[in-house]
Amino acid sequence: MNLSDFSFSTLGEYSCDLQSFDCGREDINEFFRNDALQYQDELFGKTYLFSPRDNLNQIAAAFTVANASIFTRLLPNSRQKKVGYEVHHSKNQINYPAVLLGRLGVDRRFSGHNLGLQIIEFVAQWFAGDENKSGCRHLIVDAYNENWLLEFYKKCGLNPIFSSEEQERKYRQIEDSKILQTRLLYRDLILLKRTSKHNVK
């Protein structure tokens, strides 16, 4: 099952049954069912839907994206080098424009078909493409801090910005020493347009 098998639309473009959407995480369900439209109306993010072509009322998957940045000046030196690894030296030490994949859910009825992975690749290609209306260097995900989920995002080309939770707490100004509920991950979208500049002789 591929994304091309589904109809793609913006939330609000068609009448749809969001109340029956169930991705297995109640907080994400609640967002899409009750908050996504207002979130979109307030210009905080935009939600997109994939529906079966023969039933646009049903939601197979949904995701929300918003503008973001990686504030490089606030990163430790080693992290600046990591995030800016593919950036030409003349562009170092700036805030890199990014897109935040803020919410992503695949309905349980459509699980087992790698739709989540396909959506992440769709978003990456979309914002790296020529039709994107603004500069967007990185894809960012604020992922639940769960090993299996972090491994999933790693398969999608997303890696932690920070080497440790301690570094990330300082960047995010979190004083609590408890385990972080989420981790910031990133993917440099320039590699969808060219090969690594470090591999070119």
Rank of each mutant, 00 (worst) to 15 (best):
M1W: 05
S4M: 05
F8K: 03
F8W: 04
L11V: 01
E13I: 04
S15F: 01
C16P: 06
D17V: 06
D22N: 15
R33T: 04
N34P: 08
L37A: 05
Q40L: 01
D41A: 13
L43D: 12
K46P: 00
T64E: 05
V65C: 11
A66P: 11
N67R: 11
F71C: 11
T72L: 06
R73E: 10
P76G: 05
N77W: 00
R79W: 02
Q80F: 03
V83W: 11
G84P: 11
H89A: 13
H89V: 15
K91D: 12
Q93L: 11
I94Q: 09
R108S: 11
S111W: 09
N114H: 12
G116S: 00
G116L: 01
I119N: 06
I120A: 05
V123F: 05
A124P: 14
Q125L: 13
K133D: 14
K133N: 11
K133I: 15
K133Y: 09
G135K: 04
V141N: 02
D142H: 12
N145H: 11
E146M: 09
L149N: 08
Y153Q: 11
Y153F: 15
K154H: 15
C156Y: 03
L158M: 07
R169S: 08
I174P: 15
I174F: 08
I174S: 12
K178S: 13
R183L: 08
L185R: 00
Y186F: 15
Y186A: 04
